[in-house]
Amino acid sequence: MSFIDITGLKKAFGPVTVVHDFDLGIEKGEFVSFLGPSGCGKTTILRMIAGFEAASAGRIAIDGREVTRLPPAKRDVGMVFQSYALFPNMTVGENIAFGLRIAKKSAAEIRERVAEMLAIIKLPDLADRYPWQLSGGQQQRVALARAIAVRPQVLLLDEPLSALDAKIRVSLREEIRALQRDLGITTIFVTHDQEEALSMSDRIVVMNEGRAAQVGTPFEVYTWPKNRFVASFVGTLNLLDGVVVDEGRLTLDGREVTVGRGLAGRRAGETVTVALRPEAVTLGATATGLPGTVEAVSFLGAVVRVKVRLDTQVVTLDAFNQTTQRPPEPGTAVRLVFGAEDLLVLGEG
């Protein structure tokens, strides 16, 4: 049994079911992200774990203790909200001490823990400030300190970086991950930002329409998406229609290419969707490779994005900007080179 064990979890609001028979096991100390578009059910699952939403069916257990029907205060779960949710009438120190006071810890212990938390979040001098006197990033750090001050078994993060500007997001996500590793606290992180999920998580649960579309490490989810939804949601991807020739080959716009895997069991002549990452494709100088014509070039600084038309389909590729090589001009005839393993045959969904 896993540290957090979710089985057959379901949530319906009237006739609308937003979470369908959701199963997941999370190990102690793991950092798991729920990634998906708005309305996919990721926050609802988080809120059911926290106890803010009652499950329509199913079971949630934490460290072997069933918590499905327990009120939030009895679950030993810390939560950080998108809107920070700091108590406006309390100072930073009082906010952090809130849970400790509720737990009736001694004054000395509270003082010590608050100081420790302020040091951890690198705001040791702001104990007497009020929330409105802090920046968004500082407020979210305080919210994090408040949540972990009571040393919960599980930390739930509900899009905690969404309200922050881009630069702060990057630095804070690194801080959150480092802190989570140091404390070894089991963490569930909800986000719709794939970069956050990929960079922070031990495992990612990609959610779609109330179901887990794929569960895996960031590398697995990115490299081997299980279906069309995951492929299109995680990273940028070329989705191409191909016609099966045999178990190792298919044609793209009439040109034959070799496929490493995924065609076993497919019939010759069957149309399949194949995915191709832009960074897996290079412009070849040789006569081999898929012929095409440059349609558009976007200079993005470190990366040059090139759109190449095959015949009816377009392939986008990302190449590093090199000072010795100028980007191709639109209309140039080129050859696309990629490995057989880079072509992913996608399942349905």
Binding site: A73, V77, F81, F98, I102, A147
Partner: peptide, 8 residues
């Protein structure tokens, strides 16, 4: 919710 998650 924040208060309840802190045990209140």
């Amino acid at each position: 919710e924040a208060a309840e998650s802190l045990g209140a």
